[in-house]
Design a protein around this nucleic acid. Structure first.
Lengths: 238, 238
DNA sequence: GTGTGATTCAAACGCATGTTTAAATCAAAT
DNA sequence: ATTTGATTTAAACATGCGTTTGAATCACAC
Protein backbone atom coordinates (compact mmCIF):
# COMPACT_ATOMS: atom_id res chain seq x y z
CA UNK A 1 0.00 0.00 0.00
CA UNK A 2 1.10 3.49 -0.76
CA UNK A 3 1.72 5.59 2.30
CA UNK A 4 2.00 9.11 0.99
CA UNK A 5 2.37 11.43 3.93
CA UNK A 6 3.15 14.44 1.78
CA UNK A 7 1.17 17.66 1.66
CA UNK A 8 -1.29 16.62 -1.00
CA UNK A 9 -4.33 14.67 0.10
CA UNK A 10 -4.97 11.22 -1.18
CA UNK A 11 -6.50 11.21 -4.62
CA UNK A 12 -9.53 9.27 -3.47
CA UNK A 13 -10.31 11.85 -0.83
CA UNK A 14 -9.88 14.71 -3.27
CA UNK A 15 -12.26 13.12 -5.72
CA UNK A 16 -14.80 12.53 -2.99
CA UNK A 17 -14.67 16.16 -1.86
CA UNK A 18 -14.79 17.65 -5.32
CA UNK A 19 -17.67 15.35 -6.21
CA UNK A 20 -19.81 16.63 -3.36
CA UNK A 21 -19.00 20.18 -4.30
CA UNK A 22 -19.77 19.69 -7.98
CA UNK A 23 -22.94 17.71 -7.39
CA UNK A 24 -24.23 20.59 -5.31
CA UNK A 25 -23.28 23.22 -7.86
CA UNK A 26 -24.13 21.58 -11.18
CA UNK A 27 -26.59 18.92 -10.15
CA UNK A 28 -26.02 15.22 -10.50
CA UNK A 29 -26.59 14.97 -14.22
CA UNK A 30 -24.44 18.02 -14.83
CA UNK A 31 -21.21 16.43 -13.68
CA UNK A 32 -19.16 14.33 -16.08
CA UNK A 33 -16.42 11.97 -15.03
CA UNK A 34 -13.92 13.99 -17.03
CA UNK A 35 -14.83 17.37 -15.56
CA UNK A 36 -14.85 15.90 -12.08
CA UNK A 37 -11.44 14.28 -12.50
CA UNK A 38 -9.94 17.42 -13.96
CA UNK A 39 -11.18 19.59 -11.12
CA UNK A 40 -9.85 17.06 -8.61
CA UNK A 41 -6.48 17.03 -10.34
CA UNK A 42 -6.80 13.35 -11.07
CA UNK A 43 -7.02 11.13 -14.07
CA UNK A 44 -10.39 10.09 -15.42
CA UNK A 45 -9.69 6.47 -14.70
CA UNK A 46 -8.98 7.27 -11.08
CA UNK A 47 -12.68 7.69 -10.42
CA UNK A 48 -13.33 4.15 -11.51
CA UNK A 49 -10.21 2.83 -9.86
CA UNK A 50 -11.12 4.23 -6.45
CA UNK A 51 -14.90 4.07 -6.52
CA UNK A 52 -15.76 1.51 -9.14
CA UNK A 53 -17.76 3.82 -11.34
CA UNK A 54 -19.61 7.10 -11.29
CA UNK A 55 -22.78 5.63 -9.80
CA UNK A 56 -20.90 4.19 -6.87
CA UNK A 57 -19.26 7.52 -6.23
CA UNK A 58 -22.62 9.28 -6.32
CA UNK A 59 -24.14 6.65 -4.07
CA UNK A 60 -21.39 7.08 -1.55
CA UNK A 61 -21.60 10.88 -1.57
CA UNK A 62 -25.36 11.06 -1.27
CA UNK A 63 -25.68 8.23 1.18
CA UNK A 64 -23.29 10.10 3.39
CA UNK A 65 -25.11 13.41 3.06
CA UNK A 66 -28.48 11.79 3.65
CA UNK A 67 -27.18 9.86 6.60
CA UNK A 68 -25.71 12.88 8.32
CA UNK A 69 -28.92 14.83 7.92
CA UNK A 70 -30.97 11.87 9.09
CA UNK A 71 -28.99 11.38 12.26
CA UNK A 72 -29.21 15.04 13.10
CA UNK A 73 -32.93 15.25 12.50
CA UNK A 74 -33.72 12.16 14.50
CA UNK A 75 -31.68 13.53 17.37
CA UNK A 76 -33.58 16.81 17.17
CA UNK A 77 -36.88 14.99 17.21
CA UNK A 78 -35.83 12.92 20.17
CA UNK A 79 -34.95 16.03 22.08
CA UNK A 80 -38.22 17.76 21.22
CA UNK A 81 -40.30 14.76 22.20
CA UNK A 82 -38.40 14.17 25.40
CA UNK A 83 -38.81 17.79 26.36
CA UNK A 84 -42.52 17.66 25.60
CA UNK A 85 -43.00 14.55 27.69
CA UNK A 86 -41.17 16.20 30.55
CA UNK A 87 -43.76 18.98 30.43
CA UNK A 88 -46.63 16.52 30.04
CA UNK A 89 -47.49 18.27 26.78
CA UNK A 90 -47.65 17.50 23.10
CA UNK A 91 -44.66 18.61 21.06
CA UNK A 92 -45.18 22.09 19.69
CA UNK A 93 -46.15 22.01 16.02
CA UNK A 94 -44.07 24.99 15.06
CA UNK A 95 -41.05 23.57 16.85
CA UNK A 96 -41.35 20.26 15.03
CA UNK A 97 -41.65 21.99 11.67
CA UNK A 98 -38.77 24.29 12.51
CA UNK A 99 -36.53 21.35 13.25
CA UNK A 100 -37.47 19.72 9.95
CA UNK A 101 -36.86 22.81 7.88
CA UNK A 102 -33.62 23.41 9.72
CA UNK A 103 -32.07 20.30 8.23
CA UNK A 104 -32.60 21.68 4.74
CA UNK A 105 -32.28 25.42 5.23
CA UNK A 106 -29.46 26.60 7.35
CA UNK A 107 -27.06 29.50 7.18
CA UNK A 108 -24.20 27.41 8.46
CA UNK A 109 -24.33 24.60 5.97
CA UNK A 110 -26.27 25.53 2.86
CA UNK A 111 -24.80 22.63 0.90
CA UNK A 112 -26.39 19.74 2.74
CA UNK A 113 -29.90 20.96 2.05
CA UNK A 114 -29.06 21.68 -1.55
CA UNK A 115 -27.58 18.22 -2.00
CA UNK A 116 -30.63 16.58 -0.46
CA UNK A 117 -32.82 18.57 -2.82
CA UNK A 118 -30.71 17.48 -5.77
CA UNK A 119 -30.95 13.87 -4.71
CA UNK A 120 -34.69 13.78 -4.28
CA UNK A 121 -35.36 15.80 -7.42
CA UNK A 122 -33.15 13.51 -9.45
CA UNK A 123 -35.00 10.58 -7.97
CA UNK A 124 -38.24 12.15 -9.11
CA UNK A 125 -37.20 13.17 -12.59
CA UNK A 126 -35.45 9.96 -13.45
CA UNK A 127 -35.30 7.35 -10.74
CA UNK A 128 -32.39 5.05 -10.54
CA UNK A 129 -31.11 1.95 -8.90
CA UNK A 130 -28.97 3.96 -6.55
CA UNK A 131 -31.26 6.95 -5.94
CA UNK A 132 -33.94 4.48 -5.01
CA UNK A 133 -31.63 2.70 -2.60
CA UNK A 134 -30.40 5.87 -0.92
CA UNK A 135 -33.86 7.36 -0.57
CA UNK A 136 -35.33 4.21 0.88
CA UNK A 137 -32.48 3.31 3.15
CA UNK A 138 -31.60 6.76 4.44
CA UNK A 139 -34.61 9.03 4.10
CA UNK A 140 -37.59 6.81 4.77
CA UNK A 141 -36.89 6.57 8.48
CA UNK A 142 -36.95 10.34 8.86
CA UNK A 143 -40.21 10.60 7.00
CA UNK A 144 -41.88 8.02 9.19
CA UNK A 145 -40.65 9.58 12.40
CA UNK A 146 -41.68 13.05 11.34
CA UNK A 147 -45.10 11.96 10.23
CA UNK A 148 -45.57 10.46 13.68
CA UNK A 149 -44.32 13.60 15.39
CA UNK A 150 -46.54 15.82 13.29
CA UNK A 151 -49.53 13.62 14.00
CA UNK A 152 -48.75 14.03 17.67
CA UNK A 153 -48.34 17.78 17.41
CA UNK A 154 -51.46 18.27 15.30
CA UNK A 155 -53.94 15.79 16.79
CA UNK A 156 -56.89 17.31 14.94
CA UNK A 157 -55.57 15.93 11.65
CA UNK A 158 -56.32 12.34 10.82
CA UNK A 159 -53.43 10.08 9.82
CA UNK A 160 -53.96 10.32 6.06
CA UNK A 161 -54.06 14.11 6.25
CA UNK A 162 -50.77 14.16 8.08
CA UNK A 163 -49.18 12.05 5.39
CA UNK A 164 -50.51 14.31 2.66
CA UNK A 165 -49.29 17.42 4.37
CA UNK A 166 -45.89 16.01 5.18
CA UNK A 167 -45.34 15.38 1.51
CA UNK A 168 -46.65 18.79 0.53
CA UNK A 169 -44.21 20.23 3.03
CA UNK A 170 -41.26 18.35 1.57
CA UNK A 171 -42.28 19.49 -1.89
CA UNK A 172 -42.30 23.16 -1.08
CA UNK A 173 -38.96 22.94 0.70
CA UNK A 174 -37.18 21.01 -2.02
CA UNK A 175 -38.51 23.07 -4.89
CA UNK A 176 -37.47 26.25 -3.16
CA UNK A 177 -33.99 24.94 -2.47
CA UNK A 178 -33.53 23.99 -6.10
CA UNK A 179 -34.42 27.55 -7.05
CA UNK A 180 -31.17 28.88 -5.67
CA UNK A 181 -28.62 31.03 -7.43
CA UNK A 182 -28.80 34.12 -9.58
CA UNK A 183 -31.20 32.39 -11.98
CA UNK A 184 -33.80 32.07 -9.25
CA UNK A 185 -37.32 32.31 -10.55
CA UNK A 186 -38.59 33.59 -7.24
CA UNK A 187 -36.03 36.35 -7.20
CA UNK A 188 -36.80 37.32 -10.77
CA UNK A 189 -40.59 37.31 -10.45
CA UNK A 190 -40.55 39.16 -7.17
CA UNK A 191 -38.42 41.87 -8.70
CA UNK A 192 -35.67 41.16 -6.18
CA UNK A 193 -38.03 41.38 -3.22
CA UNK A 194 -37.25 37.81 -2.23
CA UNK A 195 -33.71 36.48 -2.05
CA UNK A 196 -33.65 32.68 -1.70
CA UNK A 197 -29.93 32.91 -1.03
CA UNK A 198 -30.68 34.49 2.33
CA UNK A 199 -31.24 31.30 4.26
CA UNK A 200 -32.30 33.11 7.40
CA UNK A 201 -35.28 34.74 5.76
CA UNK A 202 -36.04 31.71 3.65
CA UNK A 203 -36.25 29.56 6.73
CA UNK A 204 -38.52 31.97 8.54
CA UNK A 205 -40.82 32.23 5.55
CA UNK A 206 -40.99 28.48 5.16
CA UNK A 207 -41.76 27.91 8.81
CA UNK A 208 -44.53 30.50 8.78
CA UNK A 209 -46.03 29.04 5.63
CA UNK A 210 -45.85 25.45 6.83
CA UNK A 211 -47.08 26.07 10.34
CA UNK A 212 -50.19 27.66 8.93
CA UNK A 213 -50.56 24.80 6.50
CA UNK A 214 -50.68 22.26 9.33
CA UNK A 215 -53.24 24.10 11.37
CA UNK A 216 -56.78 22.92 11.09
CA UNK A 217 -59.67 25.27 10.46
CA UNK A 218 -59.82 25.03 6.72
CA UNK A 219 -63.45 24.19 6.40
CA UNK A 220 -64.39 23.95 2.72
CA UNK A 221 -65.73 27.20 1.30
CA UNK A 222 -69.25 27.61 -0.05
CA UNK A 223 -68.38 26.95 -3.69
CA UNK A 224 -66.26 23.86 -3.59
CA UNK A 225 -66.04 21.93 -6.86
CA UNK A 226 -66.40 25.16 -8.76
CA UNK A 227 -63.95 24.16 -11.49
CA UNK A 228 -65.23 21.09 -13.23
CA UNK A 229 -64.80 22.60 -16.70
CA UNK A 230 -61.69 21.63 -18.59
CA UNK A 231 -59.87 23.16 -21.55
CA UNK A 232 -61.10 21.52 -24.71
CA UNK A 233 -63.62 19.50 -22.80
CA UNK A 234 -61.86 16.17 -22.93
CA UNK A 235 -63.83 13.20 -21.78
CA UNK A 236 -62.84 10.96 -18.94
CA UNK A 237 -62.17 7.87 -21.01
CA UNK A 238 -58.43 7.59 -21.03
CA UNK B 1 -48.08 19.06 -51.31
CA UNK B 2 -49.27 15.69 -50.24
CA UNK B 3 -52.97 15.50 -49.57
CA UNK B 4 -53.49 12.16 -47.92
CA UNK B 5 -57.13 11.85 -47.02
CA UNK B 6 -56.91 8.21 -46.09
CA UNK B 7 -57.78 6.73 -42.72
CA UNK B 8 -54.35 7.03 -41.10
CA UNK B 9 -53.51 10.36 -39.55
CA UNK B 10 -50.65 12.38 -40.86
CA UNK B 11 -47.33 11.24 -39.52
CA UNK B 12 -46.57 14.64 -38.06
CA UNK B 13 -49.76 14.62 -36.07
CA UNK B 14 -49.14 11.10 -34.81
CA UNK B 15 -45.66 12.03 -33.65
CA UNK B 16 -47.00 15.10 -31.90
CA UNK B 17 -49.65 13.11 -30.05
CA UNK B 18 -47.38 10.26 -29.06
CA UNK B 19 -44.75 12.75 -27.90
CA UNK B 20 -47.15 14.38 -25.46
CA UNK B 21 -48.22 10.99 -24.18
CA UNK B 22 -44.66 9.74 -23.73
CA UNK B 23 -43.37 12.94 -22.18
CA UNK B 24 -46.09 12.63 -19.58
CA UNK B 25 -45.40 8.97 -18.89
CA UNK B 26 -41.63 8.75 -18.99
CA UNK B 27 -40.58 12.32 -18.41
CA UNK B 28 -38.74 14.46 -20.90
CA UNK B 29 -35.34 12.91 -20.49
CA UNK B 30 -36.83 9.43 -20.59
CA UNK B 31 -37.97 9.65 -24.18
CA UNK B 32 -35.56 8.90 -27.01
CA UNK B 33 -36.14 9.83 -30.61
CA UNK B 34 -36.03 6.18 -31.54
CA UNK B 35 -38.60 5.00 -28.98
CA UNK B 36 -40.86 7.89 -29.84
CA UNK B 37 -40.71 7.20 -33.55
CA UNK B 38 -41.32 3.51 -33.06
CA UNK B 39 -44.38 4.09 -30.89
CA UNK B 40 -45.70 6.58 -33.43
CA UNK B 41 -45.17 4.07 -36.23
CA UNK B 42 -42.78 6.40 -37.96
CA UNK B 43 -39.17 6.46 -38.92
CA UNK B 44 -36.61 8.06 -36.63
CA UNK B 45 -35.75 10.63 -39.24
CA UNK B 46 -39.38 11.69 -39.48
CA UNK B 47 -39.10 13.50 -36.17
CA UNK B 48 -36.37 15.70 -37.53
CA UNK B 49 -38.04 16.05 -40.89
CA UNK B 50 -41.29 17.31 -39.44
CA UNK B 51 -40.11 19.19 -36.37
CA UNK B 52 -36.49 19.98 -37.01
CA UNK B 53 -35.13 18.15 -34.01
CA UNK B 54 -36.15 16.73 -30.67
CA UNK B 55 -35.86 20.04 -28.86
CA UNK B 56 -38.18 21.75 -31.28
CA UNK B 57 -40.71 18.99 -30.84
CA UNK B 58 -40.51 19.28 -27.07
CA UNK B 59 -40.77 23.04 -27.26
CA UNK B 60 -43.86 22.80 -29.40
CA UNK B 61 -45.53 20.24 -27.15
CA UNK B 62 -44.82 22.03 -23.91
CA UNK B 63 -45.48 25.48 -25.21
CA UNK B 64 -48.88 24.23 -26.25
CA UNK B 65 -49.60 22.57 -22.91
CA UNK B 66 -48.43 25.59 -20.98
CA UNK B 67 -50.38 27.94 -23.17
CA UNK B 68 -53.63 26.06 -22.81
CA UNK B 69 -53.30 25.97 -19.05
CA UNK B 70 -52.35 29.63 -18.94
CA UNK B 71 -55.33 30.77 -20.94
CA UNK B 72 -57.67 28.74 -18.82
CA UNK B 73 -56.24 29.99 -15.55
CA UNK B 74 -56.27 33.61 -16.57
CA UNK B 75 -59.89 33.24 -17.60
CA UNK B 76 -60.70 31.69 -14.25
CA UNK B 77 -58.99 34.52 -12.45
CA UNK B 78 -60.84 37.10 -14.50
CA UNK B 79 -64.13 35.51 -13.61
CA UNK B 80 -63.28 35.34 -9.91
CA UNK B 81 -62.15 38.95 -9.78
CA UNK B 82 -65.10 40.23 -11.75
CA UNK B 83 -67.46 38.37 -9.48
CA UNK B 84 -65.73 39.76 -6.41
CA UNK B 85 -65.92 43.30 -7.72
CA UNK B 86 -69.60 42.85 -8.41
CA UNK B 87 -70.05 42.03 -4.74
CA UNK B 88 -67.80 44.86 -3.64
CA UNK B 89 -65.63 42.28 -1.92
CA UNK B 90 -62.12 40.90 -2.12
CA UNK B 91 -61.74 37.65 -4.02
CA UNK B 92 -62.06 34.69 -1.69
CA UNK B 93 -58.65 33.23 -0.85
CA UNK B 94 -59.80 29.65 -0.99
CA UNK B 95 -61.47 30.21 -4.33
CA UNK B 96 -58.34 31.71 -5.82
CA UNK B 97 -56.22 28.82 -4.58
CA UNK B 98 -58.78 26.33 -5.79
CA UNK B 99 -58.66 27.76 -9.28
CA UNK B 100 -54.89 27.58 -9.29
CA UNK B 101 -54.73 24.00 -8.10
CA UNK B 102 -57.44 23.06 -10.54
CA UNK B 103 -55.19 23.73 -13.50
CA UNK B 104 -52.74 21.12 -12.24
CA UNK B 105 -54.97 18.62 -10.51
CA UNK B 106 -58.09 17.61 -12.29
CA UNK B 107 -59.97 14.38 -12.75
CA UNK B 108 -60.87 15.21 -16.33
CA UNK B 109 -57.41 15.86 -17.65
CA UNK B 110 -54.70 14.46 -15.42
CA UNK B 111 -52.12 14.77 -18.16
CA UNK B 112 -51.89 18.55 -18.42
CA UNK B 113 -50.88 18.95 -14.80
CA UNK B 114 -48.41 16.12 -15.05
CA UNK B 115 -46.85 17.63 -18.15
CA UNK B 116 -46.55 21.02 -16.51
CA UNK B 117 -44.87 19.38 -13.55
CA UNK B 118 -42.46 17.56 -15.85
CA UNK B 119 -41.63 20.79 -17.63
CA UNK B 120 -40.91 22.83 -14.54
CA UNK B 121 -39.00 20.02 -12.84
CA UNK B 122 -36.84 19.51 -15.89
CA UNK B 123 -36.24 23.24 -15.95
CA UNK B 124 -35.09 23.02 -12.35
CA UNK B 125 -32.91 19.94 -12.62
CA UNK B 126 -31.19 20.93 -15.82
CA UNK B 127 -32.33 24.15 -17.40
CA UNK B 128 -32.26 24.54 -21.09
CA UNK B 129 -32.60 27.00 -23.87
CA UNK B 130 -36.10 25.86 -24.63
CA UNK B 131 -37.34 25.15 -21.10
CA UNK B 132 -36.23 28.64 -20.20
CA UNK B 133 -38.10 30.11 -23.14
CA UNK B 134 -41.32 28.20 -22.48
CA UNK B 135 -41.33 28.95 -18.76
CA UNK B 136 -40.70 32.63 -19.26
CA UNK B 137 -42.98 33.16 -22.19
CA UNK B 138 -45.89 31.01 -21.10
CA UNK B 139 -45.82 30.64 -17.33
CA UNK B 140 -44.53 33.94 -16.02
CA UNK B 141 -47.74 35.77 -16.81
CA UNK B 142 -49.78 33.35 -14.75
CA UNK B 143 -47.43 33.68 -11.83
CA UNK B 144 -47.63 37.45 -11.84
CA UNK B 145 -51.39 37.50 -12.10
CA UNK B 146 -51.81 34.97 -9.34
CA UNK B 147 -49.43 36.73 -7.04
CA UNK B 148 -51.51 39.84 -7.52
CA UNK B 149 -54.75 37.98 -6.91
CA UNK B 150 -53.38 36.30 -3.81
CA UNK B 151 -52.15 39.62 -2.48
CA UNK B 152 -55.64 40.94 -2.99
CA UNK B 153 -57.27 37.96 -1.31
CA UNK B 154 -54.85 37.94 1.62
CA UNK B 155 -54.28 41.63 2.34
CA UNK B 156 -52.60 40.92 5.68
CA UNK B 157 -49.57 39.52 3.88
CA UNK B 158 -47.02 41.96 2.60
CA UNK B 159 -45.90 41.68 -1.04
CA UNK B 160 -42.71 39.74 -0.38
CA UNK B 161 -44.58 37.22 1.73
CA UNK B 162 -47.05 36.63 -1.05
CA UNK B 163 -44.25 35.92 -3.47
CA UNK B 164 -42.63 33.49 -1.08
CA UNK B 165 -45.84 31.66 -0.46
CA UNK B 166 -46.82 31.52 -4.10
CA UNK B 167 -43.57 29.73 -4.84
CA UNK B 168 -43.96 27.41 -1.88
CA UNK B 169 -47.41 26.60 -3.21
CA UNK B 170 -46.14 25.80 -6.68
CA UNK B 171 -43.46 23.60 -5.15
CA UNK B 172 -45.83 21.45 -3.16
CA UNK B 173 -48.15 21.03 -6.12
CA UNK B 174 -45.46 20.10 -8.61
CA UNK B 175 -43.63 17.71 -6.34
CA UNK B 176 -46.84 15.94 -5.51
CA UNK B 177 -47.79 15.61 -9.17
CA UNK B 178 -44.42 14.13 -10.01
CA UNK B 179 -45.02 11.50 -7.33
CA UNK B 180 -47.70 9.82 -9.38
CA UNK B 181 -47.88 6.20 -10.36
CA UNK B 182 -47.44 2.92 -8.51
CA UNK B 183 -43.96 3.95 -7.37
CA UNK B 184 -45.41 6.85 -5.40
CA UNK B 185 -43.45 7.60 -2.28
CA UNK B 186 -46.48 9.07 -0.58
CA UNK B 187 -48.50 5.96 -1.25
CA UNK B 188 -45.72 3.71 -0.03
CA UNK B 189 -44.94 5.63 3.16
CA UNK B 190 -48.59 6.08 4.06
CA UNK B 191 -49.13 2.36 3.75
CA UNK B 192 -51.68 2.93 1.00
CA UNK B 193 -53.62 5.47 3.06
CA UNK B 194 -53.03 8.16 0.45
CA UNK B 195 -53.53 7.56 -3.24
CA UNK B 196 -52.10 10.40 -5.34
CA UNK B 197 -53.79 8.89 -8.36
CA UNK B 198 -57.16 9.94 -6.94
CA UNK B 199 -57.16 13.49 -8.21
CA UNK B 200 -60.34 14.38 -6.39
CA UNK B 201 -58.89 13.72 -2.98
CA UNK B 202 -55.50 15.07 -3.93
CA UNK B 203 -57.05 18.35 -4.97
CA UNK B 204 -59.06 18.67 -1.79
CA UNK B 205 -56.01 17.94 0.35
CA UNK B 206 -53.91 20.45 -1.52
CA UNK B 207 -56.50 23.17 -1.24
CA UNK B 208 -56.91 22.60 2.48
CA UNK B 209 -53.17 22.64 3.01
CA UNK B 210 -52.58 25.74 0.91
CA UNK B 211 -55.48 27.74 2.22
CA UNK B 212 -54.15 27.30 5.72
CA UNK B 213 -50.70 28.19 4.53
CA UNK B 214 -51.87 31.54 3.21
CA UNK B 215 -53.73 32.53 6.33
CA UNK B 216 -51.96 34.85 8.66
CA UNK B 217 -51.77 34.20 12.36
CA UNK B 218 -48.49 32.40 12.48
CA UNK B 219 -46.92 34.51 15.14
CA UNK B 220 -43.53 33.08 15.99
CA UNK B 221 -43.65 30.67 18.90
CA UNK B 222 -41.87 31.31 22.20
CA UNK B 223 -38.71 29.47 21.24
CA UNK B 224 -37.99 30.75 17.77
CA UNK B 225 -34.41 30.29 16.61
CA UNK B 226 -34.26 27.15 18.68
CA UNK B 227 -32.03 25.35 16.18
CA UNK B 228 -28.83 27.28 15.90
CA UNK B 229 -26.83 24.17 16.55
CA UNK B 230 -25.53 22.49 13.46
CA UNK B 231 -23.92 19.11 12.92
CA UNK B 232 -20.43 19.68 14.23
CA UNK B 233 -21.55 22.64 16.28
CA UNK B 234 -21.05 25.45 13.80
CA UNK B 235 -21.83 28.95 14.91
CA UNK B 236 -24.27 31.46 13.46
CA UNK B 237 -21.78 34.11 12.58
CA UNK B 238 -22.70 35.18 9.08
C1' DG C 1 -47.70 7.56 -68.20
C1' DT C 2 -44.49 11.13 -66.73
C1' DG C 3 -42.70 14.58 -63.89
C1' DT C 4 -42.47 16.76 -59.45
C1' DG C 5 -42.13 17.77 -54.99
C1' DA C 6 -43.17 16.01 -50.59
C1' DT C 7 -42.45 12.14 -47.62
C1' DT C 8 -40.49 7.81 -45.88
C1' DC C 9 -36.81 4.69 -45.06
C1' DA C 10 -32.48 2.08 -43.71
C1' DA C 11 -28.20 3.19 -42.86
C1' DA C 12 -24.55 5.76 -41.38
C1' DC C 13 -22.48 9.79 -39.00
C1' DG C 14 -20.80 12.60 -35.15
C1' DC C 15 -20.54 13.36 -30.59
C1' DA C 16 -20.55 12.94 -25.58
C1' DT C 17 -20.02 9.99 -21.98
C1' DG C 18 -18.75 6.06 -18.79
C1' DT C 19 -15.50 2.57 -18.74
C1' DT C 20 -11.51 -0.36 -19.62
C1' DT C 21 -6.79 -1.38 -20.83
C1' DA C 22 -2.01 -1.91 -20.51
C1' DA C 23 1.97 0.40 -19.85
C1' DA C 24 4.39 3.60 -16.78
C1' DT C 25 5.30 5.33 -12.22
C1' DC C 26 5.70 5.45 -7.46
C1' DA C 27 6.70 4.18 -2.39
C1' DA C 28 7.99 1.00 0.55
C1' DA C 29 10.04 -3.56 1.91
C1' DT C 30 13.81 -6.66 1.28
C1' DA D 1 19.42 -2.19 -6.22
C1' DT D 2 15.59 -5.11 -6.76
C1' DT D 3 11.14 -6.51 -6.10
C1' DT D 4 6.39 -5.83 -5.25
C1' DG D 5 1.98 -4.17 -5.18
C1' DA D 6 -0.57 -0.04 -5.36
C1' DT D 7 -1.49 3.91 -8.09
C1' DT D 8 -1.47 6.97 -12.09
C1' DT D 9 -1.63 7.80 -16.86
C1' DA D 10 -2.81 8.38 -21.93
C1' DA D 11 -5.22 6.16 -24.99
C1' DA D 12 -8.63 3.40 -26.72
C1' DC D 13 -13.12 1.23 -26.31
C1' DA D 14 -18.23 0.73 -26.06
C1' DT D 15 -22.56 2.61 -26.08
C1' DG D 16 -26.49 5.46 -26.52
C1' DC D 17 -28.03 9.33 -28.45
C1' DG D 18 -29.67 13.09 -31.85
C1' DT D 19 -29.03 13.93 -36.37
C1' DT D 20 -27.98 13.59 -41.38
C1' DT D 21 -27.83 11.39 -45.77
C1' DG D 22 -29.20 9.76 -50.15
C1' DA D 23 -31.94 6.67 -52.24
C1' DA D 24 -36.63 4.92 -52.58
C1' DT D 25 -41.51 5.78 -52.47
C1' DC D 26 -45.70 8.07 -52.65
C1' DA D 27 -49.69 11.29 -54.14
C1' DC D 28 -50.84 14.27 -57.25
C1' DA D 29 -50.79 17.48 -61.58
C1' DC D 30 -50.16 17.51 -66.23
Amino acid sequence: MRLNHTIEKETKSRIRIVAEEMFATHGIGGVTTRALAEKAGANTAAVNYHFGGKDNLATEVFRDVAHRSTVRRLANLDRIETEARANNARPDLRTVIESFVDAYVNEDDPRTGLLLARLVLKHRVDPNEWTHAVVREELDRVAERYVAALADAAPELDPAEVHWRYHFMVGSILMTLSDDGPESRLQRLSGGLCKPADKRILRAQLVDFLTGAFLIGNQAGPDNDAYPEQAGGRSVDD
